[in-house]
């Protein structure tokens, strides 16, 4: 299986003396959704920031298709798209201008942009809002803008940070379905979430972070085996991993 994202021995954080992450290693392959789960403060966002290349590791590397951010910054960034936990929008741009700007920034051909954008807008019920400014958007709609921008690019790697908060049920459904489609087309997806029931259904593998270290990892079956309980749900496994207690 082709490795898209490769994290080896990652140690890092906001200051070198007090690292948040300790020797974290895992991969995201093509055609795979990896769930990144952990308590608040376990290091999920810090991991994501390292993957995005917004923070520099004090030890270890993160590589996308074999290259680090330091080696090829533009190529590295061009291969991933990011859905942040809190939507980040330009208050001065309309929905349509956000999409256009994203397409331009990722070097999409204008024709590709135009053929991709319409079905996406329709899927998320946003066709009649293309002239709206973010000031008039609800939290869910802002989140949809982030999702639209990410899916528009169709990169090899998706970094998704808690995408479900504020989304309406139809939006969640569309989001999950599109994610599966892109996964089947060869993309790799790293998704951080607390909605374990959904993660259990859609993720192929899990990384459970606890206090900056990987507490457990593997497919649901492998995790169950590690726990020695074939009936365990992801919730049980998660609680075990973060408390060190058997349910």
């Amino acid at each position: 299986m082709k490795k898209i994202l490769e994290i080896t021995g990652l140690t890092g954080g906001y200051s070198p003396d007090r690292p948040v992450l300790h020797d974290v290693s895992f991969n995201v392959h093509a055609n795979e959704i990896v769930g990144l789960i952990g308590l608040n403060g376990a290091g999920k966002s810090t991991t994501i920031k390292h993957v995005l290349g917004l923070m520099e590791p004090s030890k270890g590397t993160t590589k996308i298709n074999g290259k680090t951010f330091q080696e090829e910054p533009e190529e590295y960034r061009g291969q991933l798209s990011y859905i942040p936990e809190t939507p980040i929008l330009y208050e001065e741009l309309t929905l349509w201008e956000h999409l256009e700007m994203t397409a331009m920034a990722y070097g999409l051909e204008e024709q590709t942009f135009l053929t991709r954008v319409r079905p996406l807008l329709a899927e998320f019920n946003m066709e009649n809002k293309i002239k709206w400014f973010p000031g008039h958007f609800s939290k869910g709609m802002r989140q949809k803008v982030m999702i639209l921008c990410a899916f528009l690019v169709e990169p090899e790697l998706y970094i998704v940070d808690e995408p479900f908060v504020g989304l309406d049920p139809l939006g969640i459904h569309s989001f999950l379905e599109l994610m599966q489609t892109f996964k089947n087309n060869g993309a790799g997806i790293l998704m951080s979430t607390h909605i374990l029931a959904t993660a259990e259904r859609y993720c192929d593998r899990f990384i459970i972070l606890h206090e900056g270290k990987i507490a457990m990892q593997g497919t649901l079956q492998e995790l169950k085996d590690q726990l020695g309980n074939p009936d365990a749900t992801l919730d049980d496994i998660y609680i075990y991993a973060s408390r060190g207690k058997r349910p």
Partner: peptide, 14 residues
């Protein structure tokens, strides 16, 4: 004006 906006960092743009 858009200082601190993470997209400026993330775009694969020179």
């Amino acid at each position: 004006h858009h200082k601190g906006n993470v997209w400026f960092e993330l775009y694969p743009v020179k």
